[in-house]
Structure formats: C-alpha cells, structure tokens
Design a protein around this nucleic acid. Structure first.
Lengths: 409, 409
DNA sequence: AGCCCATGTTCGGATTTCCGAACACCATAA
DNA sequence: TTATGGTGTTCGGAAATCCGAACATGGGCT
C-alpha cells in the first residue's frame, strides 16, 4: 500500500507512536520516529533523502507541531504534513489547513480510514517517471521540469550554471527527450577548442555533422566577436540543427563590457535554464557522492564497504564550489587514501586536518565564527550597529555585548 | 470598516441573524439575509451584483451550509465563504477549508474579532467609482487624496518615490481625473530613451503628440543640463500641455551637486506627491500580492487555491525595495515553483532557502562552525564520543545533545 | 556469568546568554 | 529651538544552554 514511502513520525506518546510505527511499516513504509520537536526539525530540514510525508502530533514535550510546521515553512518547502492530535481545536485546524497542511485528524481515529487517507494524499506527489540525472532535491526537480519543457519546444536553449553542474548532461537530455532524438547530437567545448570557427561551421564541424539534430556549444562566453557574428547569422539563415548553448554566470558582465553580442544573447536565450550551485542543495551533493561511490568503489577500493555518516554530514556542509567535478575528484582521492573499511571525513577533506581549527575547543571555534560574522555584518552596514544587529538577527544590545567581548569598537 | 461590501448572510436563528445583520450594517455593509438554504442558493447562484462574502450557518432548516457550498462549487466559483456554527466538528472544518472556504468559526464568538477577520479576509471586489490603484493603507489613501487635488488643479506635478511604486499609474490617474482627460496623454521614460531631447520636443515627440493634454516625464533626474534648460524655457513660454514629472529620491542631491537646475525643480514641483516605499506600508504589500494572485494564479498555476497566512506574514515583513514590480516578479516566480495547493513563504522568498554565501544569521554561522568542529573532532577520535567531547572541552552529554541537534548519529 | 566501558537517555539545577526597557547622550534635520 | 534617530550603557528577568548525576543498555573480555 505504502511501499517505499519515506515517512517521518513525530509523536511523543509511546503507545500511540509505537502502534502507528508498526502499522505503517507493515504497509511497507520506511518510518523514522521522533519524540521531540527539535530533533524532528533538524531531520526534516536536512533530510537524508526526500521525505514523502510527515505525520505529526500537536502536543510535544518541547513545543508543538504547529510551531514545527511554521518553522519549517520559513526556510523550506515542507513535505506534506498530516497532523494528529488529542485535544484539537477548530481554530487551530482551520489555521493549519489554510497554511497548507494536508490533513488534521483528532485522536482517537480509525486506523484503516487513516491509512486510506494517507495513501490517497501522499502517493500522487511522488512519481519518478525517470531516474534522476541531476539530483533528488526539489531544486533539481525544478530544473528537470524546465528541461522537459525545453525538450518539447524547439527554441534555442541557454543553460547556465557554475562549473561541474552537468550542463552537458542537461543538453544531452534535452536532445534525447526532444523529437530530434533520432538525429545526431554534436558537442563543442569552446574552452578547449583551438579553432572554434571550423569546429562549429567547418566541414566535419558540429553543424555539418549534426544535420537536423542538435548542436551543443559549451562555454559560449569564450567565443570571440567574429564567430559570435557568424553564429548570429546562422540563426537568421535557419540552420537545420537546433542549438543548445551553455555558459557560466558572467555573460551579463561580458555583454556589459561589449565583449559579447547582446543580439546573440537574446537569440540563444529563448529558453534559459539556470542550474543552482551544488552548495545550495546539499541533498544532491550527498546523493551524487553515493552514486559515484557505488560506481567507483568496487574497482578502486575493494575493501571499502561504505561512507561513514559523519562523512556524509561533512559533505552536506561543504560548499562544493567545483560542483559535481569536485565531488568526483575528492571521492577518487579519498578512495585512494582510505584506510579503514568506511570512508571517513578526513579522507574526503584532508585539508581540514591541517587547518589551524584543529584542537580548538568548541567555544573557541564558535567565538571565531561569531567574530568573523559580526565583522562581516558591520562591514556590510558600514558600522551601523542597529542595522548589523538586524542582519544577524540578534538584539542590538546583544551585538553590543559581543562587540565589547571581542574588542570591536 | 466594511463600507460598500455586499454580504450574504445565511442563518436560521432569529437572534443570531438579527444581531449579525445589525452589526454588519452598522459597519457599512449591504447585507441580504436568508433563513433557508434553497433561497440562498438561488440568490447566490444568480446574484444581482457581485457578492463580496457569504457568512453561512451550518445547521439550516432545509439542509446544511456544507451542502449549499458544495452545490455552488459544482457550477461556479463561489464568493468567499465564512462558516459559523454552534456544533462544529473538526472533521467538517478541515473538509470545508480544504475545499476552499475562507474561515470556519464556532459560536459563540467575539464579534469584534470576527469583524476584524472578515475585513482582513475579504477584499472589496470592485468599487466602481474608486478602484484603489495604490493600496488600501492610510498612506495610500493620503496619496490618492493628493492625486485628486492635483487633478483638480492645473499646475505641473512632481511625483516622487522609489522604483515600482506606480508613479506612471499616478500620472495617468491625474490625467484621467483632470479636465484634460479627453485630450491625449503621452509618456516618456527618460531612463530608456536614447535621445531625450527629440523624444520630448521633437516632431512626433511627447509635446507634439499631447496637444493640450498631459505630458508625463518619467525619471526626470536623468535629463542633462541642455534639455533641462529647454524644459524650463518650455514652462515659460506656456506650452499647451500640462506636465507631470517623476523621479526618485535623489533629486536634492543632484541639485546640490549642480547637476540639476533648481529653477526647473521649482517650476515642476508646484505640486509634489511623495509615494512612500512599499516596505513602509505592509498592508499595501499584502493587498497588492493578493490582487495580483487573483489575477495571475488562474492562468499560471491552476492548482493553487490561495496564499498561506505564513506567506502573507512574510510578505508583510519584507522590505520590498523593488516596490510593486518586485511583488509581481516574485509572485510570478513563486507561482511557477509552488508545489502544494497554497503558496508558501519559500516560494516567494527562495533566497532565504539558498542564500549563496550571503549573510547568515549569527546563530546559523555559529551552528555551522560548531558542526564542522564536531565532525572534525569525531573524525579524529574515530567516532568515540567521550574522547571527542574531551577534545572539544564540553561535557559528553552536551556533545550528545548537539549531535542530536545536527543529526549526527 | 560477571565485569568493564562506552553509549543512549532523562532530569534538575547552575550558569550563561539574550532580550527588551530604560535612560543619557549626541548628532542632524525640521 | 525642538523633534528625531542612532548610539553607549545598565539592569532584571526570561530563555537557552550546559553540566553532572543517574540509570538502562549492550557489547566485549575473562
């Protein structure tokens, strides 16, 4: 009935929680049970994998379910919430449902009916019709949607994003999903190409080989003006092939500086797909890490059985400025250096060992972070303490105290 | 408070209905009272004029309010429904709210609070003589008064305010309310114009086309001195057209710096209308958001039923430096990314979800530092919690708590 | 079994931190 | 001149955090 669904249960009552847990697992769901609000908060906010539903009691020892839901809404799009409660008020029910909660049920309730409602409500949300290539985060899903939409159109596409985010994969995927999928797909990496002009337009070049397929131009910002103009012209003469281009975030700056033709930009950016950086979607980072591990570990490090949870946590925290490429590089290096039977954080991030942060006590580390953050905030506001305090979300007086403590004034 | 609102009251109890009727009419609403379901059904389905809200009892002699609502839903989109009931059930409340009712209140209730919620929830559909273009706040009303006064005079007007506050709408409105409304209204956006001089004075330019109508000069601060002088001169020679100008807040600075003619300033600022920033009048921000939602949601996001109260609260808090333009842009983006059936805060403010390295709150920065430090310590001790705690100079239990908080286990 | 040791977990109180109110002070704008 | 708005500073209570004690658990060792 609920096979494979990942459900979070938040319930402090042992009996109630136990029976729910049992029943849900019987139905095939993977359930994680929290008895306190703050624990559930952390787990839902940074989930190991996407959560399909949250079943949440209202009365909790360290808060209430409403609070939990509201807090989540501030920073993220929460998964579907079903509230169950013993002392429910109509007022509260109305408020929660209007805030987007999926259901609100009073105890005691009929378990069979409850499960039926649950399966009705939750299942349609999750239908992965094809294996995810970019990631599992909601942001990645968003991009996939855009990709699908781009595939069904026939306009030129501009894919934008930092390095190592799979812009080439996206282009390939658009081609494969489009009705040109039977025709050739040719890619040119402008950053590597010696002679871009001939690689694109020459005999045996991209357009030549593509026929009425798709031409993918990676790093379009590197083109010099003459080739840009030829490309613009190519659009006008209606080449047979469809064009997908990719570039980093700096194209506007290039246009501003007059190094990139704004006309070409508008031609090629009929559809624009922005790929958010990997650091902004930690779920994808760990997902990718696990995927690559599965693929690479058997050959390269036969002894390794898995990745330690700590290591995954560290990966979730890391910024990954190099995108997927960095994930792969670090993993390869880590696999070579791993000693035990699981991959440790120091394998993936050896530089953190040498860091001076090492044997600092927690309080010191915390203070150091506070200090730099405060300095940054004060810098941003030009020394305006009140404003800086607002930025840091603390009271003005508290900031003043801290400044005194750190000797800033 | 409820001036001009058309409200349908469905209530069989004489006392209750009478007191509600009395009170609502006291507040300025036009109320029609039905005591039976089938009568109300007919009246709502084929209304004389648009109905702003329905206040509906559940228990009725010939049926119940839910039935009434559902019947209406099948044939049309009903006006906002507020249910009031004596023997309400949570089950029922949840069902009704999920199917789109605006509120569900149990008797007895506090009349004052009820009226407040009513006025908050219900937005006047159309007030034909006076559709508010700027907002509903007292500040916006103030501006409207100034607009009306400006329209009745014939002096040049200077409209001032940040971007996206509808300065163009104000100019248009002054024109439409003035006795030049039959003559042409021509607008020039000086920020976009290549050749301001000819766009204003040239053949086919604003003055030429306006005749004895109104000329609107947006972004007057961008004019260079020669054109300023020509404009000043135009005032002296008494052109036929009336001039309305608009600019940001920086005009005084320009005058100070000698880049703007103070004489022209005094000429054009005979009447000065200051539009306060949207961040200073939160009611208008949410009002505008709701207006735009009503207009845009049906086309762009058919599944969406409304805006979550949390989201409205977030909108009320936001600064809206981009004015109405920002409201619109954020809404459009949010509609595209919304997942559930209501718009969530993270849809409208995705940057709070993935702030690219920007300004973290102090607590976040501190937590991040703690987390990495803890991971490093645990890594060093090979996962030995007690040892790691000693390294970090905190109690074992404290470390355990933190590990829970950060989801490490 | 019996013991040892580390962990998982709760609890109550000690301590620290945080906040808001309040007041004095000093610019600067009206 | 008077408002106004930001800052420096103090203070008391509220809230969080931290800690140690305590107890159960469970795995490894003899």
């Amino acid at each position: 009935m609920l096979d494979g669904l990942r459900i979070v249960l938040v319930e402090d009552d042992e009996i109630m929680g136990g029976s729910l847990l049992q029943r849900l697992e019987l139905e095939g769901a993977q359930v994680v049970w929290f008895k306190q609000m703050h624990r559930a908060l952390g787990a839902i906010r940074t989930p190991q994998r996407t959560i399909d539903a949250v079943i949440c009691d209202i009365a909790l020892p360290d808060g209430n379910g409403e609070e939990l839901y509201n807090t989540l809404c501030q920073t993220a799009t929460p998964p579907p919430f079903l509230f169950i409660t013993g002392q429910g008020g109509i007022e509260q029910a109305v408020r929660l449902i209007k805030s987007g909660a999926v259901d609100y049920i009073t105890k005691p309730f009929d378990m069979g009916a409850f499960l039926k409602r649950l399966s009705m409500l939750v299942i349609p949300a999750e239908t992965p019709d094809f294996p995810p290539v970019l990631g599992v985060s909601s942001a990645a899903r968003q991009v996939e949607k855009l990709v699908a939409r781009a595939a069904s159109s026939d306009e030129p596409v501009l894919v934008r994003g930092g390095p190592g985010l799979g812009k080439d994969l996206i282009a390939r995927r658009i081609h494969d999903l489009s009705d040109r999928c039977a025709a050739p797909f040719t890619a040119v990496n402008l950053a590597r190409e010696e002679d871009p002009d001939s690689a694109i337009f020459g005999a045996g070049g991209a357009f030549d080989l593509a026929g009425d397929g798709t031409v993918f131009l990676n790093g379009i910002g590197r083109l010099d003006r003459p080739v840009q103009d030829r490309l613009t012209e190519a659009f006008e003469t209606r080449r047979a092939a469809r064009v997908i281009a990719a570039c980093g975030h700096d194209l506007e700056a290039l246009i501003e500086a007059g190094q990139f033709s704004s006309e070409l930009f508008y031609r090629v950016a009929q559809v624009e797909i922005m790929v958010p950086p990997l650091g902004a979607r930690p779920e994808d980072a760990v997902w990718l890490l696990e995927q690559l591990f599965k693929k690479l570990a058997p050959q390269r490090a036969a002894g390794l059985e898995g990745i330690s949870p700590l290591c995954l946590a560290a990966a979730r925290d890391h910024d990954w400025p190099g995108g997927g490429r960095e994930v792969r590089a670090r993993l390869v290096r880590g696999l070579a250096r791993a000693a035990g039977n699981v991959l440790q954080p120091s394998d993936l991030f050896p530089e953190s060992l040498a860091a001076p942060h090492d044997q600092m006590s927690l309080a010191e580390a915390r203070d150091a972070a506070e200090k730099t953050q405060i300095i940054a905030a004060l810098d941003r506001t030009g020394g305006q303490i009140g404003e800086a305090a607002k930025l840091l979300r603390i009271a003005r007086t508290t900031l003043w105290e801290k400044m005194q403590k750190f000797g800033l004034s």
